[in-house]
């Protein structure tokens, strides 16, 4: 599997789309977590985020602020990365090139999942790092004390962020295997994450009891609950404490395993066209 991992790593690092997605992730994280809220505070304008006062942007809120985007928007980007990593082989017809070199399908797929897990960690670390710089700059500009979260909180936050990010990447991977393409899995994945999840939470769950109950078992709400448990602002889309942090972590981890296993089983069973 180490051969497959090193090959996948080269492909991921050399692919321009990877860096574009990382750039978009960091830009979205900065803009919506720090830039707009800070503009509101600095301009003393009333708006939808006026409840996010200056203290919420300071370094001691780094963990929550860094995790807030992962249940929906940043998660969607990780899903796209997962689709691209696996679906690209279908789009370019390169499965045959790879597999005729000798590795088994599961070795190649494991290499891909491992690379996605590493990429998810890199993305989360980058979001934390950029957030730390932004929070420190805001604290400095506003003459506020710079107090960083405890190391254990940081490690827990990065771990939770990695769990959520990796789960979405695995969902992208399994969708790519199931649909043997790139465009359709990206489209369906985004519709689920950005539209269906929010409609369920905002419209269906308050009206129908079983939908509200079912939400507690879905990946998005559990990712949101995990982020909420670690301090993500409650007004962030997708962030809500529908279940406790421990249960949410378990459910997200279970989805990660299920998505990874389902993709592997499908890939192993099907013919490569």
């Amino acid at each position: 599997m180490s051969r497959s991992f090193s090959a996948e790593l080269v492909k991921l690092v050399r692919r321009p789309a990877t860096w574009l997605l990382l750039g978009i992730t960091l830009a979205l994280s900065l803009i919506f977590t720090y830039l707009f809220p800070y503009a509101g505070v600095a301009g003393e304008a009333a708006g939808p985020n006026t409840d996010r006062a200056l203290p919420a942007m300071l370094p001691d809120h780094l963990v929550g602020n860094s995790l807030g985007g992962l249940p929906v928007f940043l998660g969607a980007i990780l899903l796209i990365l997962g689709v691209l990593t696996v679906g690209g082989e279908y789009a370019w017809g390169t499965w045959k090139t790879v597999l005729t070199q000798g590795p088994t399908r599961l070795q190649v797929y494991a290499g891909k999942l491992l690379v996605l897990a590493v990429a998810a960690l890199a993305v989360v670390l980058a979001v934390f790092a950029v957030g730390a710089v932004a929070a420190a700059l805001i604290a400095s500009a506003e003459a506020q004390p710079v107090r960083w979260p405890a190391a254990t909180d940081l490690v827990t936050g990065v771990g939770a962020g990695w769990l959520i990010a990796t789960m979405w990447a695995m969902l992208g991977a399994v969708l790519a295997v199931a649909l043997r393409a790139v465009a359709l899995p990206v489209g369906l994945g985004l519709v689920w994450m950005l539209a269906v999840q929010n409609l369920l939470a905002a419209i269906a769950a308050p009206l129908v009891d079983w939908v509200a109950t079912a939400q507690e078992g879905l990946p998005g709400p559990n990712a949101g609950a995990l982020a909420a448990a670690l301090g993500a602002p409650g007004d962030t889309p997708g962030v809500a404490a529908v279940v406790g942090g421990g249960q949410a972590a378990l459910v997200v981890a279970a989805y990660l395993v299920v998505f990874a296993s389902a993709g592997a089983a499908l890939l192993r069973r099907r013919d490569i066209d």
């Binding site: 497959s4 370019w92 090139t97």
Partner: peptide, 17 residues
Amino acid sequence: FYPYLSGWDNLRVTARY
């Protein structure tokens, strides 16, 4: 092969597999 890689890099990836 992977269109964004050079011929050499495509073979490098393939050789790793």
